[in-house]
């Protein structure tokens, strides 16, 4: 009889934990969730718990309740702040404003940073590394960047480059689909590193991978794309390989 009761109690606690996990994972309308009933239920289950395992499970449920309360507090703080605006109202306000009003709103709230670009040691170092890495100017180098053109001037044929691209794509996949640019091209020597950077530039151009930049941290991430996306307005930028 005792054994049956234990089983029922355990099942109830497990069910409660699953419900709480569900709330945490959804995170939607967290302010509308009423926790009173769940707290009452947990109090009952805790008082009728006899084994260490049951008490342990109850503490797991308490931990989840604490997470939900924390999330509710965060949501409440955000909603009560001056920056909380209903997305629908904001959309209406934007659609109801003309370009002059919108730009005036920005101008009145904008205090641009004042700064001058000057040649400094940091930029000189970058420029030197870049200068050393570029190939000798030639007519071929001005041709459009295609695998065929690169195969003409490098030691790999078109098939070889495709294999290298595939290998690097699989490597990125093995690393969870996202990796720091520097780490992905990390090699034993500089020539291998530059070769990897060239292969990666093809992958970016063809849309196999994307780039996420964090200017403040100075980090560049390479992210795998499930399907190739051809950008209508491709952006060109330089990544210095050190």
């Amino acid at each position: 009889m005792l054994s049956n009761k234990k089983t029922t109690n355990e099942k109830e606690i497990q069910k409660l934990i699953e419900e709480l996990d569900n709330i945490i994972s959804k995170k939607e309308n967290i302010l509308e969730i009423n926790l009173d009933e769940k707290i009452r239920k947990l109090a009952e289950l805790l008082s009728s718990s006899n084994s260490l395992e049951e008490i342990n499970n109850c503490s797991e449920a308490i931990q989840r309740l604490a997470v939900i309360i924390f999330e509710k507090t965060k949501a409440l703080k955000n909603r009560s702040g001056i920056l909380y605006i209903d997305p629908f109202l904001m959309k209406l306000a934007i659609l109801g404003s003309n370009i002059e009003k919108l730009s005036k709103a920005f101008i009145q709230s904008w205090r641009p940073v004042v700064g001058r670009d000057v040649i400094n040691l940091f930029l000189l170092k970058d420029a030197m590394t870049y200068w050393n890495s570029i190939t000798k100017y030639s007519f071929e180098a001005r041709e459009e960047k295609t695998i065929e053109n690169v195969s003409k001037i490098s030691f790999l044929d078109e098939r070889g480059i495709n294999e290298e691209i595939e290998e690097m794509y699989n490597e990125l996949e093995r690393r969870g689909g996202k990796e720091l640019y520097d780490k992905l091209i990390e090699s034993k020597n500089l020539s291998e590193k530059i070769f990897k950077a060239v292969i990666l530039s093809f992958m970016i151009t063809y849309g196999y991978v994307g780039i996420i930049r964090e200017p403040l941290k100075g980090k560049v991430w390479v992210v795998k794309k499930e399907k190739t996306i051809e950008s209508k307005n491709p952006e060109s930028f330089v990544i210095v390989v050190k």
Partner: peptide
């Protein structure tokens, strides 16, 4: 980072509304 550094967000919302 530049919006956070240069723009008064509360002000911009006030102006829009």
């Amino acid at each position: 980072w530049r919006t956070k550094s240069e723009v008064d967000l509360e002000n911009i919302i006030r102006y829009i509304f």
